[in-house]
């Protein structure tokens, strides 16, 4: 019974990680950049939202909006490191992550943990889950709708083209440096937004909460694709939804493992190994099952 009771809050938190995974999907899958800024920018979102609401008495929507802007700035820094400074994308993300560690502590006034006042309920909370789920449904519909629209525009199409074939994109007149920065800005704004939601839901901000966020995001993307790719096919909105579901499934498995009494110190290791394994599968498929892949392609060509 205790396990069943723990499920709805786990699902709710899974949705928040799933929203973050949409941000990861934008860089990792669409832009073809592994962006490690995420571990920092999710905490920036948490910190900015909490501090504005708690210390500056701002309404919740201001906290959320400010988190989005802060995430954009984080993405901008990584983007500038990558395109203008010429630093490889992964290293750029790590550098920004480190910068954000200091920035986040500074935002939170030098402590690593800031809580919302007890007894005050915001629009999402562990206390009123049905209301929380309703808000999540609205947020997801708006977010997925927004990106479905954006990636269908000429600008959005050039983001996809840049991730798919950068040489071709330049030949077609796309400023690929600008597009990369844009993609990182958009992605990190989503990540910071999810961080703000997480802080409201949990009732606090923690400078350590972002550790391994990128791995959770990647896991959500991979699980979503592995389980639902046959259903989502070429529908972009469904793909994003499957990524969110991937986040939910990841977090439920996580909760189950905790419930089963596994030493929680192993959790991060297990998720990392799981992601490594999932990332290896397409590579192994290519390397050791070349014939199968080739045959598939031939069939498709003759179709």
């Amino acid at each position: 019974m205790l396990y069943l009771a723990s499920l709805p809050p786990a699902i709710a938190q899974g949705i928040i990680w799933g929203i973050m995974a949409i941000g990861v999907y934008i860089t990792y899958r669409i832009l073809d950049v592994a962006d490690l800024t995420v571990d920092g920018s999710i905490c920036t979102g948490m910190a900015v939202c909490t501090v504005l609401i708690v210390k500056f008495d701002m309404p919740v929507w201001v906290g959320l909006a400010a988190a989005v802007v802060a995430g954009m700035l984080a993405g901008l820094v990584t983007g500038i490191f990558h395109t203008f400074f010429g630093i490889p994308a992964i290293l750029s993300g790590i550098l920004t992550q480190l910068i954000l560690w200091s920035v986040n502590l500074k935002i939170m006034g030098g402590t690593s943990n800031v809580g919302y006042p007890f007894g005050v309920e915001y629009f999402i909370s562990t206390e009123s889950l049905s209301k929380t789920f309703l808000y999540f449904a609205i947020i997801l519909a708006l977010l997925i709708g927004l990106f479905y629209w954006f990636f269908g525009t000429t600008l959005g199409a050039s983001v996809r083209a840049t991730g798919c074939n950068i040489n071709m994109s330049r030949a077609q007149g796309i400023n690929t440096d600008f597009i990369k920065v844009l993609g990182l800005v958009i992605s990190n704004s989503v990540v910071a937004f999810s961080g703000a939601l997480l802080s409201l839901f949990l009732g606090f901000s923690d400078a350590n909460a972002g550790k391994g966020a990128i791995v959770i995001g990647l896991a959500a993307v991979i699980i979503g694709e592995a389980l639902f790719s046959r259903i989502t096919r070429n529908n972009f909105a469904l793909k994003l939804l499957s990524v969110v579901l991937g986040g939910v499934i990841y977090y439920m498995v996580y909760q189950t493992i905790i419930y089963l009494g596994l030493d929680t110190n192993y959790l991060k290791m297990l998720s990392a190994l799981l992601v490594a394994l999932f990332l290896a599968v397409p590579y192994w498929k290519k390397k050791y099952f070349k014939k199968a892949a080739k045959k598939e392609k031939e069939v498709a060509e003759n179709a």
Binding site: T153, R160, M168
Partner: peptide, 22 residues
């Protein structure tokens, strides 16, 4: 762009040298 549709590729070319907006 291999992962994009034929029509999406053609659309990319249609905007060569033009502003890409929303």
């Amino acid at each position: 762009a291999a992962d994009m549709w034929i029509e999406e590729n053609l659309s990319l070319a249609k905007y060569r040298g033009k502003r890409r907006g929303l």
